[in-house]
Simulated assay, not measured.
Amino acid sequence: MSTTHPTTSETLTRFYAAETAYVAAGGPGAAAFDDIAACLDPQVVLHQAPGLPYAGDWRGPDGIERFMAVMSEAWQSIEFLDQSHIIDGPDVVVTSRVRFVARATGRALETRIVQLMTVRDGKITEIRPFYWDPPAVTAALQGP
């Protein structure tokens, strides 16, 4: 018996829509994490670079849920202005132009992010984002 998995493109589309909705709803308690979790492999790892307010490795769906709680606390909205996916088997490069609005300061930040991802059998197994300007992220969150 064969199992049909969503395509990589379908998985990415669902993941980014769920992430946007989760943050916009205010995160834990205000939104269900289920739509994000449905896109994740049980062994998923998110590697956030040093220098970001949410740096570190976030492991498993529980780790991603903790990360999303931190993101929801930091940002009141995430808007993907344009995005492209370069898919080569399980390896994916996602380029995004993103507009964030900080929850505490109300400051908006438009920036670019490149994410190296791995998607296997319709589930994300690894996410490695690279922000164009990490100091601008921190500045937007901390205010003037």
Score class of each variant (00 low, 15 high):
R99M: 11
E79A: 15
T105G: 04
G29M: 01
W75Y: 14
Y54T: 13
I87V: 15
A30K: 13
I87C: 12
D82Y: 07
D34K: 05
M71G: 02
S72M: 02
L12K: 00
R107C: 10
I78C: 09
C39D: 00
V45P: 00
S2F: 13
Q83R: 15
L109V: 11
A49G: 04
T111A: 10
A139R: 14
Q115F: 04
T20I: 10
V98H: 08
V93E: 03
F80R: 11
D41R: 06
P144Y: 03
T105R: 03
S84N: 13
T138E: 03
T111P: 06
V94W: 00
W75T: 12
M117D: 10
Q115H: 12
G63H: 04
G106K: 03
L109E: 03
T138R: 04
V114T: 14
P28Q: 06
V98M: 14
S9M: 09
D133P: 08
A102G: 08
M68S: 12
G122K: 11
A108T: 13
T7A: 14
G122A: 11
A18P: 08
Y131L: 09
P28K: 05
A37W: 05
G26Q: 08
T11S: 10
E126W: 06
V137F: 03
T105P: 00
C39A: 00
S84H: 14
R128T: 05
T11H: 07
T95D: 12
L81G: 06
A74H: 02
L81N: 06
E73L: 10
P6F: 09
M117Y: 07
A69D: 10
G51D: 12
Q48R: 09
P90T: 06
S2Y: 14
G51M: 10
V98D: 10
L12C: 02
A32E: 14
D62R: 11
R14D: 13
E79Q: 15
E65A: 15
Y22S: 04
T13G: 02
R103T: 14
V94R: 03
H47R: 13
P42I: 00
M68T: 09
P134W: 11
L141I: 08
Q48W: 09
C39V: 00
V98K: 05
I78S: 05
A140T: 15
I113W: 08
A17I: 04
V92Y: 07
V23D: 06
D91V: 12
E73C: 05
P144C: 04
A30F: 12
A108K: 08
R128S: 02
V44T: 12
T95V: 13
H47A: 10
G29F: 05
G60M: 11
T138N: 06
A25N: 03
W75V: 13
P135M: 02
F100R: 02
T11Y: 11
L40S: 04
T105I: 08
P61Q: 04
